[in-house]
Simulated assay, not measured.
Amino acid sequence: MRVTRIETLACDAGWRNYFFLKLCTDEGIVGWSEYDESFGSPGVGAVIDKLAARVVGQDVFAHERIFAEVSALTRPAPGGVIGQAIGAIENALLDAKAKALNVPCYELLGGLVRDRIPVYWSHCPTWRINHPKFYGPAVTDLEGVKRTAAEARERGFTALKTNLFIHEDGDAYAWRPGFAVPFEPGLNVSPKLIRNVRRHLQALREGAGDDVQILIDLNFNARPEGLLALLRALDDFELFWVEIDTANPKALAYVRSHSRQPIASCETLFGVRGFLPYFQEQAVDVAIVDTVWNGVWQSMKIAAAAEAHDVNVAPHNFYGDLCTLMNIHFAAAVPNLRVMEVDVDRLPWEKDLFTHAPEYDGGRLVVPQRPGWGTEPLEEALRARPPKVTGGLLQYKRA
C-alpha cells in the first residue's frame, strides 16, 4: 500500500485553530493525524508540504524507514516545527497501517496493557478564566475556582491540573511571562505571585475536597531561583506534581533535589536524545511526552528509555479530540504510564468535527476498539468552519 497524496486541513477552534494531516493511499485507505500550529509552532504545515514529496510513493507499512529518511533530510535543523511535521506524518502512517490491518493502533504498539486510562482534568479552571467565550461557565474569582473544582469531583475525576493566576486588581487573569503574557523576560517571582498561587490552590482544595489530587503547571514562567521560592511556599500543600519547563536538565535536577513535591517536565522535547540528559541527571519524577510532536511510534521509544531509568511517563495532550484518541492508544500500550492529560472543557461544536468523541467511564478514558485511532475528522464540518488568520499565542497583543 503506497502513499498517493498528503494534504493539510485546518478549522476554527475558538481561541485557536485545529490542524490535520490527511494521508491518502492507492488502496483507498486514508490515514489521519492532528498537529498544532497555535501554541508556538507556526509553519508546521509548510514543512509537511515540503516533506510530502519524499513520502508520496512510499510503502505505508515502512513508517520507520520513512521516519529515518525525512529525519536525515532535515538533520541540520532537527526538532522544532520540523520535528512536529515528521511526527504528524508518522502518526498518519500509523493510522493508515492499522486500518489496512483492521486493528486499533495500540496493536501496532505491542497490544493493550490497560483498557481504561487514568486521567486528570487539565486547564481547570484555566480555560474558563482565559477563554470564557468558548468554555463556560466563566470564572472570574476564587469562588468560581472553587465551583469548578467541585464540579471535577462531582463528575468523578480524581485529579485536576491548574496554572498560574492573579486574583487581585479585578477579575482573575493568567500569569504567563514565559509566553510573553505579560512581557516580563526576567521571569521573576514576586511575593504577589506567591500569595495568589497559594490562594488559588486553597480554593481548588476547598472545592475539590481531600480525595481529588491537584497538579500545578509552572511552564516556562520562572527561573530556578523563582521556582525554588514557589516550591518553598507550597511545602504545606500535598500536590500530585509540579510541572516545570526548562532547557537545563542540571538546573531542573537541582530544583527537584530541593522539592518535596514531585516534578514533571519534558513536554517540549524531541526524541530519546532530547530526553536522555533529563533521565541521566535524575531531573524528573514523571517525563511528559508529546506524542503529537514526536509521533506515537517514536514516543514508545522515549517511554522505553524512561522505563530504563525507572521513570513513568504522561502524554501531553491539550489539542482536539483526534489528538486525545491518538494519546489514548499510546497510554493503553505503554507499561510505565503515570496518568494522561485531557481537557474536559470542550468547544460547543467539537462533537460535530469528528466521527467519534472520547468516551469516559467513571473519570477514566475508554480505549476504543475501532481500527486506527478510532475516530476521523469530518471534512465537511472542518471546511464549514474556516480557520482564523491567526490564533493561539499569536493572537495576544503586546502588554
Rank of each mutant, 00 (worst) to 15 (best):
G178S: 06
C124S: 11
E238H: 09
L160G: 01
T324W: 01
P386L: 10
S38D: 11
G209C: 11
D245K: 01
L239D: 03
N102K: 15
P386V: 08
P386K: 10
Q282L: 06
S71G: 15
A283N: 03
W15F: 11
V286H: 04
E225R: 09
L51G: 09
P76V: 11
L215D: 12
P377S: 09
E34S: 08
S265K: 00
G374I: 00
I263W: 00
H329M: 03
I166H: 08
K133I: 12
P377I: 08
I129H: 00
A229V: 08
R260L: 14
L94R: 00
I194N: 08
L269F: 08
A308H: 09
Y360R: 13
A68P: 13
E27R: 14
N317T: 10
T324L: 06
V311S: 01
F354G: 01
P185G: 02
D26S: 09
G79F: 02
D245I: 03
G28F: 10
E307M: 12
E267C: 05
C266P: 05
A88M: 01
V113N: 05
N163Y: 03
T375L: 04
E238L: 10
W293C: 09
N294Q: 07
L230C: 07
A399E: 15
E359P: 00
R155P: 13
L322I: 11
T355K: 08
I328S: 02
Y278S: 06
P335L: 13
G57Q: 06
R364K: 15
I89S: 08
P358T: 07
A333E: 01
P125L: 10
K397M: 13
K133R: 15
R116E: 14
W32H: 03
T140E: 13
R346E: 08
G79H: 05
R383N: 11
V289I: 12
R205L: 08
G320I: 08
S190L: 07
F275E: 06
F279G: 08
F39A: 11
L325M: 14
E267I: 08
D169M: 12
V139C: 09
D210H: 15
M1D: 11
I288F: 04
S71E: 15
R147T: 10
A172I: 07
D141K: 03
Y360H: 13
V119K: 14
V30Y: 02
N163P: 10
S265P: 01
C124I: 03
L23R: 00
E107N: 13
D361I: 11
A98Q: 01
K161F: 06
D36S: 07
C11F: 08
S299F: 05
A253M: 04
A96T: 03
H316S: 01
D26M: 14
G110E: 04
E281I: 03
L201F: 01
N317Y: 02
I328M: 04
L21M: 09
P185A: 06
G57A: 10
K351I: 15
L365W: 03
P348V: 14
L218A: 04
I216N: 00
V289A: 06
E168S: 15
A96H: 01
L231D: 03
L347K: 05
A100W: 13
L204R: 02
G87N: 07
L93M: 09
R260T: 13
E37A: 10
L394K: 13
L269Q: 04
P315H: 06
T25I: 05
A52W: 02
L73F: 12
F275T: 09
R199D: 05
V139F: 13
